[in-house]
Each structure stands twice: as C-alpha cells, then as structure tokens.
Design a protein around this nucleic acid. Sequence first.
DNA 1: TGAAATGGTTGATACAATCAACCAATATTG
DNA 2: CAATATTGGTTGATTGTATCAACCATTTCA
Lengths: 155, 155
Amino acid sequence: MPDRTEDVIDQLHALMHLFKDRMRQALNVDGGGLGPTEARALRFFSHHPGSTQQDLVAHSGRDKAQITRIVQQLMERELLAREPDPNDGRRFNLQLTKKGLALQEAMHTQRKKLAADMLRDLSKDERQQLGGLLERMRESAEGSSTAASERIASR
Amino acid sequence: MPDRTEDVIDQLHALMHLFKDRMRQALNVDGGGLGPTEARALRFFSHHPGSTQQDLVAHSGRDKAQITRIVQQLMERELLAREPDPNDGRRFNLQLTKKGLALQEAMHTQRKKLAADMLRDLSKDERQQLGGLLERMRESAEGSSTAASERIASR
DNA sequence: TGAAATGGTTGATACAATCAACCAATATTG
DNA sequence: CAATATTGGTTGATTGTATCAACCATTTCA
C-alpha cells in the first residue's frame, strides 16, 4: 500500500506553483505590473484598512525596511495613501486610494476566477471536503510551530 | 452558504508557507546551509541521475545561467559530480556524489518527517481522500495551462 | 527627567534571477 | 563537403528582493 504522505506534499507544491504562475501572469496583464509582494501588501491593507506598516511587518514576517519600500512604491503609484495617526505621532494609518481599491477589486476577481478554474472538476461536496481537510491539516500543522518560525503565513 | 472556493486557495497558500518555513529551518540545521533552490536541484539529480543541466532547466523553468551557478556551487561542495557525455561533447552528465547522496537522504527523511507531522491529525482514509482530491485538482488545473505558462512545476 | 521601546527611514550589502553575448560541439541543409 | 543553425554550457552586467545596521522622532516607562 502506498504511503501518500509525501504525495500530498508534492501535490501541494505543484498546485501552488501552478496557481502562482497563473496569478503572476494575470497580474502582469491586469495588475499594472505589480509584483507579487506588492500585490500581497495591497491585499493586506484592503483587508485591514487603517493599519500601519508595522502591522504588515508583523503579519508578513518580512523586514521593516522592505515593507517601507513596498509601501513607498504603492504610494508613488497612488494605490495607497497614508495619514498621520492623530493619537501617535510615529504611526501612519494606511488605506487604499480609489485607484487602489479598483485595482484590488480587479485582482480579487482574477484570483477568484483562477481558483474557480482550478476547482472546476470537483463537485460542491468535494470542495467542502477538500476545504475541511486542508483546514484541519493547517490547524494541526500550525499547532506544532517551532519557536523560531513564529511568523504568520502571508494569507 | 459559503463559497469555499477561495478558502481552498488560501489554505493551500498557508500550508505551503508553513511547510516551506519549516523545511528551510530544517535545511539550515540539517542541510549544511543549502538554499532551497540548491536543495531542489540536488533532489532533481537524485531522482534523475545522469541528467544534464539542460534537463533541469527544462524541468524547473529557471534560467540557464542560474542553473549553471547552482550546479557549480553544488560541485564545489562536492555534493554533485559531472562527467562529459561520451556521445556528445557538449553535454555533461551529472550525478550525486556519496556526500550528496547522504545529504539528499537526510533531507528526504526530514521532508517525510515534516510531511507526516503536518498530516498527523488525519486518518489514513482521510489522507487517501485528500491525496486523491488534490491530484484531481492538479490534473484539471494543468489541463488548462495557458500558452505562456508552459513550464513544469518544480515537484 | 532620563532611559528604553516603538514606528519608520535610509544606506550598504547579499543574493537570486534574468538577459545578452559568447564559445565549442553537434546537426542540418544546399 | 562547406556554410549555417542549433544546442549545451559559461560569463558579465544588471535588476529586484531581502536583510542588517544605524539612525531619527516620538512615545512610554521607571
């Protein structure tokens, strides 16, 4: 009897690469040349409007400096805007601009389309099943986090 | 009723990040400081002994030059060795050295351990199920490859 | 008030990845 | 067979992403 344990990981790998490739491809057309990191940052601030750079640092695990630069780029493109926090002179609260919102919306749609396409051969029940299994897998996997890898996966 | 379609993708993302993080972490201890790219290259030549660099280029989709450099590094560390192809003066056939095999074996074990750990809360049946679902997902996803993304996911 | 912590910026630097140009060997074709 | 194209591989230049360290301004805490 086959083990499957490793197969599962391989499948995950393969699937993610497929998805990433297509997403990147879609971004180049649809996302005005946003890199994947920028896209994720935009996504983050769209899900957590008014957050600070520091929040993204904590959430993504990337370096402060890098986040600063990404945010700068997004602001230069006028996809993101910031205003000083009235209560704390160090913080800046970030949120998407109109333009940013529109782009984010477009990317979200693309993302959904891609996801739907990859799942098109599974029945509704099977999707539910798959989602459930993956979720349980993730939960138990996260549970056993080693001290050094305490950062949150980037959604 | 919830859609789940996007959830599934998110779960995939999260899982891959978890796995990658831990694998990287494990590599730093166990893999003598191999980067993920080098580790994958080693893995490839262990699965396809006697292949050429070009084979890896085709399989991984990365740039020729980069592959050359990775292979060079692996050879400097004496994990990989090459000999000229007797039938074609351009080719070099590559295979792991003893040292390379040992390392690869150690990494393989780690990998299996990680995978097993992530799946520990699923029953045997559920693993089978999950594997099957993922495989079908991958197959149908690969089917609809767009012209520009014709490269093979890196296993 | 002085010391430490926090949010953010900047400069130097490392590294992976890609592109373009190139060499040597082989295949193709007229 | 000679000229040409293709293939496997290498090298140099360049870009993009990430990290580290030092730093400034503001806030918090002792």
